[in-house]
Each structure stands twice: as structure tokens, then as C-alpha cells.
């Protein structure tokens, strides 16, 4: 089963996203939250590295993140991994919360990493108002 890594500048956001995704999947999908830096806002390379290792699975790992340094730090960590590990890990270009919810459900039904990533990225187009008049 594909697992998820949630990265945010805020520990509360990362933990909250995990909490909602865990509820959607009944805890079936391994999800780790990697938020904040030294008690404040920021991105923590060591926490991200440890998070990826904690949920690493040969089925794949999907990283969902907020922005800026979260992206740059995740990419820096991936560069230091072996080629065989790195090819099992993908970063979703997706909204963090919606992407995590949709992709966690997709992961829970046993879909491959490419499909889980695609579903996360489609969350960018998810409409919340039926009329579209926002």
C-alpha cells in the first residue's frame, strides 16, 4: 500500500491534515506528519527524512506539501536517497488538504503510486460549490 508524508510549515496543519486523512481511511494507510521547525513555523529536513523512512514502503510513498521551503527541502532530502528508494517516492503538485484526503482514500484501495499521485493532483480542480459561482 502507498503511504503518505504530509509536510507543512506548521506542525498543527500537518497534524490536522493527517487527522482528517486517518479518519477517511480508518487508519489503514500509513501517514506521517512532518510539520514545523524548532517549535515554530518552518521546514525541518531531519524530520522530513525521518518521516519518509518511517513510512517507506516498496509500494511507494507520496509526499504532499504546502509550499516554498517545504518543496525545496523535500527535494533536497530526495536527492540524498539511493536511486532505488527515490524511484518509489513522488511529490504531488497538489493542494495539501484536499490532495491528502483524496489520495489517502485512493491509497487505501491499493492503487499504485502513479494513480495515487494523479488523484492527489486532480484535487486542485475539485469544486466545492455545485453552481461554481463562488
Amino acid at each position: 500500500m502507498v503511504s503518505l508524508v504530509i509536510i507543512s510549515h506548521s506542525a498543527k496543519i500537518a497534524e490536522g491534515v493527517k487527522e482528517m486523512a486517518d479518519q477517511m481511511t480508518g487508519g489503514a494507510v500509513p501517514i506521517v506528519s512532518c510539520g514545523g521547525f524548532e517549535g515554530g513555523l518552518g521546514t525541518d529536513e531531519e524530520r522530513i527524512r525521518a518521516g519518509i523512512q518511517a513510512v517507506y514502503s516498496p509500494d511507494g510513498v507520496l509526499i504532499l506539501l504546502d509550499l516554498g521551503s517545504a518543496v525545496l527541502t523535500a527535494e533536497s532530502v530526495l536527492e540524498t536517497l539511493s536511486d532505488s528508494e527515490r524511484e518509489k517516492i513522488a511529490i504531488a503538485d497538489a493542494p495539501l488538504l484536499e490532495g491528502a484526503l483524496f489520495s489517502s482514500v485512493e491509497a487505501s484501495i491499493g492503487s499504485p503510486l502513479s494513480k495515487v499521485k494523479e488523484v492527489a493532483e486532480q484535487a486542485a480542480f475539485f469544486r466545492k460549490l455545485e453552481t461554481g459561482n463562488s
Partner: peptide, 15 residues
């Protein structure tokens, strides 16, 4: 720098 800056300048200057 990558591991201690905590912002985008960490990975940028680090790299």
C-alpha cells in the same frame, strides 16, 4: 544549512 535554516534559503544556499 539545509538542515538548520528552516526556510527556503536553507536548501538554496545549502545546494
Amino acid at each position: 544549512l539545509v538542515s538548520t535554516v528552516g526556510g527556503a534559503s536553507g536548501p538554496l544556499y545549502g545546494t
